[in-house]
Computed example of a mutant assay.
Amino acid sequence: MTDTTASTPSGARPAPGGTFPLGPRAVARIGFGAMQLGELPGRTLPTDDDATAVLRRAVELGVDHIDTSHFYGDDTANRRIHAALGSADDIAIASKVGAVRAADPAAPVPLVVAQKPAELRAQVEQNLRTLGRDHLDLVNLRRTDAGHGIIATGDQIVPLDDQLAEMIAMRDEGLIRSIGLSNVDAAQLRQALPAGIGEIQNAYSLVARDDEDLLALAVEHGIAWVPFFPLGSAFPNAPKVADQPAVQRVAAAVGATSAQVGLAWLLAHAPNVLLIPGTGSVEHLEQNVASGSVELTPGQIAELDAVAAGVLA
Rank of each mutant, 00 (worst) to 15 (best):
P230T: 04
A99Y: 00
M170Y: 10
F71V: 09
E220P: 01
H135L: 06
G86W: 08
S205L: 09
E283I: 15
A118Q: 12
Q156T: 14
P245L: 06
G299F: 00
K96A: 04
P298M: 06
R101N: 15
E166A: 15
Q201Y: 08
N237V: 13
V294N: 08
T297F: 14
A192P: 06
L111I: 02
V219I: 10
A313W: 13
P239H: 05
D137L: 06
R56Q: 12
H70W: 07
P236F: 01
R25T: 15
V97E: 10
V241H: 03
L181M: 12
L175M: 15
D64F: 08
E283H: 13
E119T: 09
R25N: 11
L206P: 04
R80K: 06
G149E: 02
I30C: 08
V184I: 15
A290Y: 03
S69A: 15
A107L: 01
D67Y: 00
T19A: 04
G23T: 10
D211A: 01
V261D: 01
A195F: 09
G232P: 11
E125Y: 00
A313P: 04
A313V: 14
G299W: 02
I176A: 10
R57M: 11
I223E: 00
A106I: 01
V54Y: 10
A58K: 02
L215Q: 03
L37H: 06
A309H: 15
G33A: 10
T130K: 01
I168Y: 01
F20S: 07
V294I: 15
L45P: 02
L175H: 14
T4N: 13
T2K: 13
V226S: 05
A103N: 14
G42M: 06
L215T: 01
A122D: 13
I168W: 03
G222N: 13
R143F: 07
R79C: 00
P194E: 13
I168N: 03
T5I: 12
P159A: 01
D137W: 05
L128M: 05
R142Y: 00
P46W: 05
L193Q: 09
A106P: 02
T19Q: 08
A83V: 11
A103M: 11
S7T: 15
G149P: 02
E119W: 08
A114F: 04
T297R: 13
N140A: 11
V124E: 02
V54N: 07
E60V: 14
R190L: 08
V139C: 02
G18F: 11
D145S: 04
E212K: 08
D162Q: 05
A246E: 09
L267W: 12
E119S: 12
G196Q: 08
Q188M: 14
L193V: 10
Q201V: 12
R79K: 07
G147P: 04
P230G: 08
